[in-house]
Amino acid sequence: MEEFAVILGRHFTSLYPQVSEATVTIVERPWERVTVDGKPHSHGFKVGVEKHSTEVIVKKSGSLRINSGIQGYSLLKTTQSGFEGFVTDRYRLLPDTRERIVATEVTAWWRYPFEHVSQLPSKPFCFTQRYQDVKKVLAETFFGPPDVGVYSPSVQNTLYLMAKEVLTRFPDISSVQLRMPNLHFLPVNLGSKEAPLVKFADDVYLPTDEPHGTIEATLISRPMSKL
Protein backbone atom coordinates (compact mmCIF):
# COMPACT_ATOMS: atom_id res chain seq x y z
CA MET A 1 0.00 0.00 0.00
CA GLU A 2 2.83 2.40 0.86
CA GLU A 3 4.61 1.57 -2.40
CA PHE A 4 1.42 2.37 -4.33
CA ALA A 5 1.15 5.73 -2.54
CA VAL A 6 4.75 6.55 -3.53
CA ILE A 7 4.01 5.62 -7.15
CA LEU A 8 0.95 7.87 -7.18
CA GLY A 9 2.87 10.76 -5.63
CA ARG A 10 5.72 10.47 -8.12
CA HIS A 11 3.22 10.22 -10.97
CA PHE A 12 1.49 13.51 -10.17
CA THR A 13 4.66 15.46 -9.34
CA SER A 14 6.47 14.31 -12.48
CA LEU A 15 3.61 14.49 -14.98
CA TYR A 16 2.19 17.92 -14.15
CA PRO A 17 4.57 20.90 -14.08
CA GLN A 18 2.21 22.91 -11.88
CA VAL A 19 2.24 20.25 -9.13
CA SER A 20 5.15 20.72 -6.73
CA GLU A 21 4.01 18.35 -3.99
CA ALA A 22 1.56 15.48 -3.66
CA THR A 23 0.08 14.05 -0.46
CA VAL A 24 -1.43 10.59 -0.82
CA THR A 25 -3.52 9.12 2.00
CA ILE A 26 -4.77 5.54 1.85
CA VAL A 27 -6.81 3.63 4.44
CA GLU A 28 -7.20 -0.13 4.11
CA ARG A 29 -10.29 -1.55 5.75
CA PRO A 30 -9.83 -5.29 6.27
CA TRP A 31 -12.36 -7.93 5.30
CA GLU A 32 -12.36 -11.20 7.21
CA ARG A 33 -13.67 -14.48 5.84
CA VAL A 34 -16.73 -15.68 7.77
CA THR A 35 -17.17 -19.14 9.21
CA VAL A 36 -20.45 -21.01 8.71
CA ASP A 37 -21.09 -24.30 10.54
CA GLY A 38 -17.43 -24.40 11.54
CA LYS A 39 -16.14 -24.04 7.97
CA PRO A 40 -14.61 -21.01 6.20
CA HIS A 41 -17.10 -19.68 3.66
CA SER A 42 -15.95 -19.76 0.04
CA HIS A 43 -17.06 -16.20 -0.73
CA GLY A 44 -18.48 -14.73 2.49
CA PHE A 45 -16.70 -11.92 4.35
CA LYS A 46 -17.34 -9.47 7.19
CA VAL A 47 -15.77 -6.08 7.81
CA GLY A 48 -12.83 -6.17 10.20
CA VAL A 49 -12.09 -3.56 12.84
CA GLU A 50 -8.62 -2.03 12.89
CA LYS A 51 -7.44 -0.24 9.76
CA HIS A 52 -4.04 -0.03 8.10
CA SER A 53 -3.37 3.53 6.97
CA THR A 54 -0.60 5.47 5.29
CA GLU A 55 0.22 9.05 4.35
CA VAL A 56 2.96 9.68 1.83
CA ILE A 57 4.26 13.11 0.82
CA VAL A 58 6.28 13.34 -2.39
CA LYS A 59 7.83 16.56 -3.70
CA LYS A 60 8.94 17.28 -7.24
CA SER A 61 12.52 17.43 -5.97
CA GLY A 62 12.23 13.81 -4.84
CA SER A 63 11.90 14.68 -1.16
CA LEU A 64 9.85 12.01 0.55
CA ARG A 65 8.01 11.28 3.78
CA ILE A 66 6.32 7.94 4.51
CA ASN A 67 4.05 7.52 7.52
CA SER A 68 2.18 4.32 8.27
CA GLY A 69 -0.33 3.61 10.98
CA ILE A 70 -3.09 1.63 12.56
CA GLN A 71 -6.50 2.94 13.57
CA GLY A 72 -9.22 1.47 15.77
CA TYR A 73 -7.03 -1.17 17.45
CA SER A 74 -9.12 -2.06 20.52
CA LEU A 75 -7.31 -3.73 23.44
CA LEU A 76 -8.53 -4.75 26.91
CA LYS A 77 -7.06 -6.43 30.00
CA THR A 78 -9.29 -7.69 32.81
CA THR A 79 -6.51 -7.58 35.41
CA GLN A 80 -2.82 -6.71 35.88
CA SER A 81 -3.58 -3.01 35.61
CA GLY A 82 -3.56 -0.19 38.15
CA PHE A 83 -3.77 3.55 38.67
CA GLU A 84 -1.01 4.73 40.96
CA GLY A 85 1.82 7.19 41.38
CA PHE A 86 -0.04 10.23 40.08
CA VAL A 87 0.09 13.71 41.62
CA THR A 88 -2.21 14.07 44.61
CA ASP A 89 -3.82 17.49 45.02
CA ARG A 90 -7.22 18.94 45.89
CA TYR A 91 -8.56 18.22 42.40
CA ARG A 92 -7.82 14.53 42.39
CA LEU A 93 -10.79 12.28 43.18
CA LEU A 94 -9.56 8.80 42.22
CA PRO A 95 -7.62 6.80 44.81
CA ASP A 96 -4.67 4.60 43.91
CA THR A 97 -5.54 1.06 42.89
CA ARG A 98 -3.58 -1.96 41.70
CA GLU A 99 -6.56 -3.82 40.30
CA ARG A 100 -8.83 -2.60 37.51
CA ILE A 101 -9.88 -3.26 33.94
CA VAL A 102 -7.89 -1.31 31.38
CA ALA A 103 -9.22 -0.79 27.87
CA THR A 104 -8.26 1.50 25.02
CA GLU A 105 -8.49 2.03 21.28
CA VAL A 106 -5.00 2.50 19.91
CA THR A 107 -4.21 4.92 17.11
CA ALA A 108 -0.58 4.60 16.07
CA TRP A 109 1.54 6.36 13.46
CA TRP A 110 5.15 5.60 12.66
CA ARG A 111 7.56 7.22 10.25
CA TYR A 112 10.10 5.53 8.04
CA PRO A 113 13.56 7.12 7.67
CA PHE A 114 13.47 7.47 3.88
CA GLU A 115 13.76 11.20 3.12
CA HIS A 116 14.28 10.99 -0.65
CA VAL A 117 13.05 8.62 -3.34
CA SER A 118 16.69 7.71 -3.99
CA GLN A 119 16.86 6.25 -0.44
CA LEU A 120 14.14 3.70 -1.07
CA PRO A 121 15.59 0.17 -0.83
CA SER A 122 16.64 -1.40 -4.11
CA LYS A 123 15.11 -4.64 -2.89
CA PRO A 124 11.35 -4.42 -2.29
CA PHE A 125 10.65 -3.37 1.30
CA CYS A 126 7.59 -5.12 2.67
CA PHE A 127 5.62 -2.33 4.37
CA THR A 128 2.69 -4.68 4.90
CA GLN A 129 4.88 -7.11 6.85
CA ARG A 130 6.26 -4.26 8.94
CA TYR A 131 2.68 -3.18 9.69
CA GLN A 132 1.91 -6.68 10.96
CA ASP A 133 5.16 -6.68 12.96
CA VAL A 134 4.37 -3.37 14.66
CA LYS A 135 0.82 -4.46 15.41
CA LYS A 136 2.16 -7.65 17.03
CA VAL A 137 4.72 -5.77 19.15
CA LEU A 138 2.10 -3.28 20.36
CA ALA A 139 -0.15 -6.13 21.50
CA GLU A 140 2.67 -8.15 23.09
CA THR A 141 3.85 -5.14 25.10
CA PHE A 142 0.32 -4.23 26.18
CA PHE A 143 -0.67 -7.74 27.31
CA GLY A 144 2.63 -9.33 28.38
CA PRO A 145 3.25 -13.11 28.38
CA PRO A 146 0.08 -15.18 27.83
CA ASP A 147 0.37 -17.13 31.09
CA VAL A 148 1.12 -14.33 33.55
CA GLY A 149 0.68 -11.04 31.68
CA VAL A 150 2.51 -7.90 32.77
CA TYR A 151 1.50 -5.32 35.36
CA SER A 152 0.75 -1.78 34.20
CA PRO A 153 0.69 1.03 36.79
CA SER A 154 -0.92 3.40 34.27
CA VAL A 155 -1.90 3.75 30.63
CA GLN A 156 0.82 6.40 30.34
CA ASN A 157 3.48 3.91 31.38
CA THR A 158 2.20 1.21 29.03
CA LEU A 159 1.96 3.63 26.09
CA TYR A 160 5.58 4.68 26.58
CA LEU A 161 6.78 1.07 26.75
CA MET A 162 4.81 0.15 23.62
CA ALA A 163 6.33 2.97 21.57
CA LYS A 164 9.81 2.32 22.97
CA GLU A 165 9.62 -1.37 22.05
CA VAL A 166 8.67 -0.55 18.46
CA LEU A 167 11.69 1.74 18.08
CA THR A 168 13.96 -0.83 19.72
CA ARG A 169 12.81 -3.71 17.55
CA PHE A 170 12.70 -1.90 14.20
CA PRO A 171 15.62 0.39 13.30
CA ASP A 172 13.87 1.21 10.00
CA ILE A 173 11.27 3.20 11.98
CA SER A 174 12.43 6.67 13.04
CA SER A 175 9.51 7.81 15.20
CA VAL A 176 6.28 6.52 16.74
CA GLN A 177 3.18 8.44 17.81
CA LEU A 178 0.55 6.71 19.96
CA ARG A 179 -2.88 7.91 21.02
CA MET A 180 -4.72 5.81 23.62
CA PRO A 181 -7.99 7.03 25.19
CA ASN A 182 -8.76 5.47 28.55
CA LEU A 183 -12.03 3.56 28.07
CA HIS A 184 -13.56 2.86 31.47
CA PHE A 185 -15.47 -0.19 32.68
CA LEU A 186 -16.92 0.62 36.10
CA PRO A 187 -18.13 -1.93 38.68
CA VAL A 188 -21.92 -2.04 38.97
CA ASN A 189 -23.94 -2.66 42.12
CA LEU A 190 -27.65 -3.12 41.46
CA GLY A 191 -29.86 -1.63 44.15
CA SER A 192 -28.74 0.64 46.98
CA LYS A 193 -26.29 0.44 49.87
CA GLU A 194 -29.13 -0.34 52.25
CA ALA A 195 -30.82 -2.94 50.04
CA PRO A 196 -28.51 -4.32 47.36
CA LEU A 197 -30.36 -6.25 44.71
CA VAL A 198 -27.24 -7.86 43.33
CA LYS A 199 -23.88 -7.47 45.06
CA PHE A 200 -20.91 -6.79 42.81
CA ALA A 201 -18.56 -9.77 42.64
CA ASP A 202 -16.18 -8.89 39.82
CA ASP A 203 -18.86 -9.82 37.31
CA VAL A 204 -20.90 -6.81 36.13
CA TYR A 205 -19.24 -3.72 34.63
CA LEU A 206 -20.66 -0.63 32.98
CA PRO A 207 -18.78 0.68 29.92
CA THR A 208 -18.57 4.48 29.91
CA ASP A 209 -17.14 6.75 27.23
CA GLU A 210 -17.42 10.04 29.14
CA PRO A 211 -15.61 11.40 30.96
CA HIS A 212 -12.31 9.89 29.91
CA GLY A 213 -8.72 10.90 29.45
CA THR A 214 -6.74 10.56 26.23
CA ILE A 215 -3.06 9.77 26.53
CA GLU A 216 -0.73 10.70 23.68
CA ALA A 217 3.03 10.62 23.17
CA THR A 218 5.59 10.72 20.38
CA LEU A 219 8.93 8.93 20.66
CA ILE A 220 11.77 9.63 18.25
CA SER A 221 14.78 7.38 17.85
CA ARG A 222 18.10 9.05 18.52
CA PRO A 223 20.04 9.38 15.25
CA MET A 224 23.48 7.84 15.19
CA SER A 225 26.33 10.34 15.14
CA LYS A 226 28.25 10.63 11.89
CA LEU A 227 32.03 10.45 12.06
Score class of each variant (00 low, 15 high):
residue 66 I to M: 09
residue 18 Q to M: 12
residue 82 G to K: 02
residue 51 K to A: 03
residue 84 E to K: 07
residue 71 Q to C: 03
residue 72 G to L: 02
residue 36 V to L: 06
residue 60 K to E: 10
residue 55 E to Y: 02
residue 59 K to Y: 07
residue 50 E to F: 01
residue 58 V to R: 07
residue 50 E to H: 07
residue 7 I to N: 15
residue 56 V to W: 11
residue 25 T to M: 06
residue 47 V to E: 09
residue 6 V to R: 07
residue 52 H to S: 12
residue 39 K to Y: 07
residue 48 G to T: 06
residue 13 T to Q: 11
residue 46 K to D: 11
residue 48 G to E: 05
residue 60 K to M: 03
residue 71 Q to M: 05
residue 64 L to N: 08
residue 47 V to C: 06
residue 12 F to A: 09
residue 41 H to N: 13
residue 58 V to Y: 11
residue 55 E to D: 04
residue 38 G to E: 01
residue 35 T to W: 10
residue 80 Q to C: 01
residue 22 A to W: 03
residue 62 G to H: 08
residue 40 P to L: 03
residue 11 H to Q: 15
residue 35 T to H: 09
residue 64 L to V: 08
residue 45 F to I: 13
residue 51 K to E: 06
residue 49 V to I: 06
residue 33 R to S: 10
residue 46 K to F: 08
residue 80 Q to P: 01
residue 34 V to G: 04
residue 37 D to H: 03
residue 66 I to N: 06
residue 60 K to F: 04
residue 29 R to Y: 04
residue 64 L to R: 09
residue 23 T to P: 02
residue 10 R to P: 06
residue 60 K to W: 05
residue 45 F to V: 15
residue 81 S to R: 00
residue 18 Q to W: 02
residue 12 F to E: 13
residue 17 P to D: 13
residue 66 I to K: 04
residue 43 H to N: 12
residue 75 L to N: 01
residue 81 S to A: 06
residue 44 G to A: 13
residue 6 V to M: 10
residue 76 L to R: 08
residue 70 I to E: 08
residue 71 Q to H: 08
residue 48 G to R: 12
residue 47 V to L: 12
residue 85 G to I: 03
residue 63 S to T: 08
residue 15 L to M: 12
residue 39 K to S: 07
residue 75 L to H: 00
residue 69 G to H: 02
residue 47 V to A: 11
residue 76 L to A: 04
residue 78 T to K: 03
residue 51 K to S: 04
residue 7 I to H: 15
residue 32 E to V: 10
residue 16 Y to L: 14
residue 52 H to I: 01
residue 58 V to C: 05
residue 78 T to P: 00
residue 25 T to G: 05
residue 25 T to Q: 13
residue 50 E to I: 00
residue 42 S to P: 07
residue 52 H to E: 11
residue 20 S to E: 15
residue 68 S to T: 04
residue 42 S to F: 08
residue 68 S to Y: 02
residue 39 K to Q: 13
residue 80 Q to L: 03
residue 80 Q to E: 05
residue 23 T to H: 13
residue 42 S to Q: 14
residue 28 E to H: 14
residue 59 K to M: 08
residue 50 E to Q: 09
residue 62 G to F: 12
residue 59 K to W: 05
residue 16 Y to V: 13
residue 41 H to P: 06
residue 18 Q to H: 14
residue 74 S to V: 00
residue 12 F to K: 07
residue 55 E to A: 07
residue 53 S to C: 09
residue 22 A to M: 13
